[in-house]
Each structure stands twice: as C-alpha cells, then as structure tokens.
Design a protein around this nucleic acid. Structure first.
Length: 444
RNA sequence: GUGGCUAUAGCUCAGGUGGUAGAGCACCUCGUUGUGGUCGAGGGGGUCGCGGGUUCAAGUCCCGUUAGCCACCCCA
C-alpha cells in the first residue's frame, strides 16, 4: 500500500473547513432563492463532441471510460468543465418543461485539467446564475443578475467585492465607428492590456490592420472608468474628437445604446450594494460570444486571486439561436480557499454537536441516551460520550471538538465548558443559546 | 504544455566538507484514583518520496523517476 499523498488540484477540507465551505454555499443558495432563482443539478458528464465543441478548452477536458472497455474504444463522454455547457444542453432538452424567461442557479463541481496552484484547481465548485429568455430578453435582466451576485457576495464573510463592468454594444459600436472590422480580434488584444501594456496592445492592433488613430482611440477608450454615469461624458468627448467612418449612424446608435445600458447597470448595482460596481471600459473578456454586459469581480485586498465572479450577456445559449441569456459564475472553491487560507473566517466548531452527554458508567449509559434523545427531540444536536472515562477525559473530548456543553445525567446538570458555569437543567426544556445551536462562521 | 524550487516523525522543520537519524508542536501514560485547558515527569512513533550508481560506509555525492509548491499560459 503506497503512502497517501496529496493529489494536486483536488482540494479536500477538514471538517471545520468544510463547515466554512458549506455555509458559504448555503448563503449563496439563500440569496439566489430570495431572488426567485430555481435550483437545478445536471449530470457530471456530457457527450464529448458537445463539450469539445467550444474553442481550445478541449485539451483540459477529462474523459471518462471503463477500465474494462475495449483497448481501442473511444471515450464518448467527459466531465463538464463549466456549468454553462451542461445548462445549454439542459435547456434544449427540457425546454418543453421550462417557463421562460427561466431563472436558474446551479452550484456544482466542475473539472479542468489545468496546472494547479493557489486558487486554481482541477476539481472545484462553481455557482452559476443565468436568466434565459425565449427569442428575447430585456436588458434590465443584465442589471438584475449583477445585483443578485453583488448581494450574494456582500452576504459572505469576505472583504468588499468590486464588480468591473463593461458593455459589448458600446465597445462594438465604438470600434466599428473608428473603422475596425475585426472587433473580436481587437477585443482579444485589449484584453491583454495588463500583460503587454499599452504599447504592446497598440502594436498588436496595428499588426491586425487597425489604423494608428483608431488604435489610439481604442486605448483611450480603455482608459476610461467611473463609479457612476461620469464615463458617458468621457466617451462622448472621445467620440467627438476621433475620426470615424463615413456611414457612422449604425455604430453610433449601437454605442449610445451600450452607453445607456452600462449607465443603468452601474447605477442599478450601486443602488443595491453601494460602491460595488465600476464601469471599466477596458474589461473585454476573451470569450467572443458575449454581446452585451460583461462582468468581472475582484475582492478588495485579494486582487491577486483574479476574478472570483464573472460572466456576461449572450445572444443564444443554444446553437441555432432563440435563447438569449445573461449569466454570472462564482468561483466558489477559489473563494473558499482564500477565506480559509487567509483566515478571513472560520467555523465555531468542527462538529454539529452542541451537547455531549457524559456517561458515568456503562451500566447507566441508557440514562445518558435518554437525556440525549430528549434533547434531540427538540432539535438540539447531541452525542453521548463514547466511553465512561473520567469526567475530565469526557470534558476534554468535548473541548477538542468545540462542543460547548457537557451534560451530567447523574446530577442533572449542564456545564458550559467555555465559562465553566454548571447549572441544574431539565432535558425536556433546556435550550442552548441560539448561536451555539449549530456550527457557525465566525470572523474577527 | 514551459520554467524554477522542494521531498527527513502525524504537522513545521534541523541534520557544514559522507561515519548507522534529531527538535518543537501534536498524541499516549502518570503526577491529579470521576470535572478538562496550565505545569512537571515519562512514553510510542521514521522503508530519510521511489529506483539505480559511486564508496569500506549515503539522509548527505551523482543519474533517473514520481509527487508537491510557485511562476507563465489560461481561466473561477
């Protein structure tokens, strides 16, 4: 038997750490439900052709096969690497049973064969919300999903989140207006701004046939950001001073539409959770299927983690069209690993137990069991000591697990082992303080 | 996929130039014989990641290999 070794990229938690993860997930569920999102769960596997269809992520897909399969048998299924692909399939398959616009949330593990490091895993939880329409989807839903996510993050024991948002219509109108035909290509270059700098981006753009003045304008646009509608004037000014194509009416209309939507987004989110949203016209997002709002979210003081929640508006979830939607995804494991690693929050105890009933001797274990059942009958998590050891040992058993109360059936007394207070109590009516009833998350 | 670093007790790590493995923490017992945490004394624990080579002798030097960590790429 080989020694057990950690497997890189597949995080596992201690019971106390798992409490933190569970409570975070439960908090997200609660916020999503509060806003009317229905939960679904999809299977872990999808047909390979459906998974691999999307871009270059194919290399990262884990395929599934049986050890007993024929040696030359091809794998037909793989583990999903996000929740959007399975959701798209699900919507297509169950459209007869769904009511549109369909608001759903989904919190599940996904798998990617990437090189792991802190905050990057091969197996991790994502929490997705999406709203999908039939044929059309009002733009205000792009505000709604961002508001829900802003609230979901605000409810977690983490520093303030900043949601950097942009709008593809705005960018597309602007780019086309200054004479750029390959908007997607230009966006991919702008996306590298942090990495290669303004000069690098300019070089890439001109290399793709973008004129010098247009490249300058694109870089100027990327410089604009604001926490309120103030960016509109900056964009309008830039637009007014930049040479545009002759037939600019279409692009200009698209630009103005995008501007209005971005204003609504920033103001909407900031009304819900003040200070969260910031319009940042450099936010591009590499994925080219986004057509409206795009979002990236960072935690104050933890920007090195990268985006912990991102997404955007897309024209259709399903190939062939007809299902426009907007969605965002939280990297739950990335978040949890930082919360635990940086000790932003911890569990009040590792076990659910609120009361340990001591056992005086094995002959009277039944009495202790009766006390335990009386407490359990009223929803109080209780366990009975495993051995009739010295009371000191039994108290130590509770202390090591963070169990706050020890019950002595003989004397009918319950002791709060943190304070040492011991009082007479009736198992039929005694209640622990509400905050001790179950493990909870505590912060400093 | 590319590059750098690392691998010794359950955990964190010491072990100049080769000479038969150590500390702290954790764990168990006792002091304290049925009310814990402190303190003191004692104790159990190691194929030194794995394989090969050099040598009288390898945790230590060399080669290979596996795994982990970090960075790049990409993303949650």
């Amino acid at each position: 038997m080989a020694r057990v070794r950690p497997l890189s990229g597949y995080p596992e938690w201690t019971p106390a750490e798992r409490v933190v993860e569970s409570q975070l997930i439960e908090s997200l569920r609660e916020t999503f439900r509060l806003h009317g999102f229905a939960e679904i769960e999809t299977r872990a596997v999808e047909p390979l052709d459906r998974l691999a269809g999307k871009s270059d992520a194919a290399k990262e897909i884990y395929t599934l096969g049986r050890l007993g399969a024929e040696p030359d048998a091809e794998s037909k299924v793989g583990l999903h690497f996000d929740l959007t692909v399975p959701f798209a399939r699900y919507v297509e398959e169950f459209q007869h049973a769904l009511a549109f616009p369909f608001k759903r949330f989904q919190i599940q593990k996904v798998w990617r064969g990437e090189r792991p490091q802190e905050g990057r895993y091969r197996e991790f939880y994502q929490a997705d919300i999406d709203v999908v329409g039939r044929e059309s989807l009002p733009a205000h839903l792009e505000v709604e999903v961002a508001v829900v996510m802003a609230r979901a993050l605000a409810a977690l024991p983490v520093p303030a989140a900043t949601m950097r948002v942009n709008n593809r219509r705005l960018v597309e109108g602007f780019y086309r207006g200054v004479g750029i035909d390959d908007v997607a290509g230009a966006l991919r270059s702008v996306d590298k701004l942090d990495k290669i700098g303004a000069d690098g981006v300019r070089a890439e753009l001109t290399g793709k046939g973008v004129s010098d003045t247009a490249a300058d304008a694109v870089l100027e646009l990327a410089r604009i950001s604001a926490r309120d509608a103030g960016f509109v004037e900056a964009v309008e000014d830039l637009w007014a001073t930049t040479p545009t194509i002759d037939d600019v009416d279409g692009p200009q209309a698209e630009l103005r539409e995008g501007l209005a939507q971005l204003v609504a987004l920033v103001e909407g989110v900031n009304a819900a959770v003040p200070g969260t949203a910031i319009a940042d016209l450099r936010i591009a997002r590499g994925l080219d299927y986004y057509t409206g709002s795009v979002y990236e979210t960072f935690l104050a003081g933890h920007e090195d983690l990268g985006s912990i929640c991102s997404g955007g508006r897309y024209d259709s979830l399903v190939a062939g069209g007809g299902f426009p939607g907007v969605g965002m995804s939280i990297g739950v494991s990335r978040l949890v690993s930082r919360v635990i690693g940086a000790d932003l929050a911890r569990a009040s105890r590792a076990v659910p137990t609120a009361v340990l009933v001591a056992v005086t001797d094995e002959a009277t274990r039944a009495t202790s069991n009766e006390v335990a059942d009386a407490l359990r009958a009223r929803g109080i998590a209780t366990e009975v000591a495993p051995a009739a050891a010295k009371f000191g040992k039994q108290i130590q058993y509770a202390d090591r697990r963070g169990i706050p109360f020890v019950w002595f059936a003989d004397s009918g007394e319950v002791k709060d082992i943190r304070s040492g207070d011991q009082v007479a109590a009736d198992a039929a009516s005694w209640e622990p303080p509400a905050e001790d009833a179950r493990p909870r998350i505590v912060t400093d």
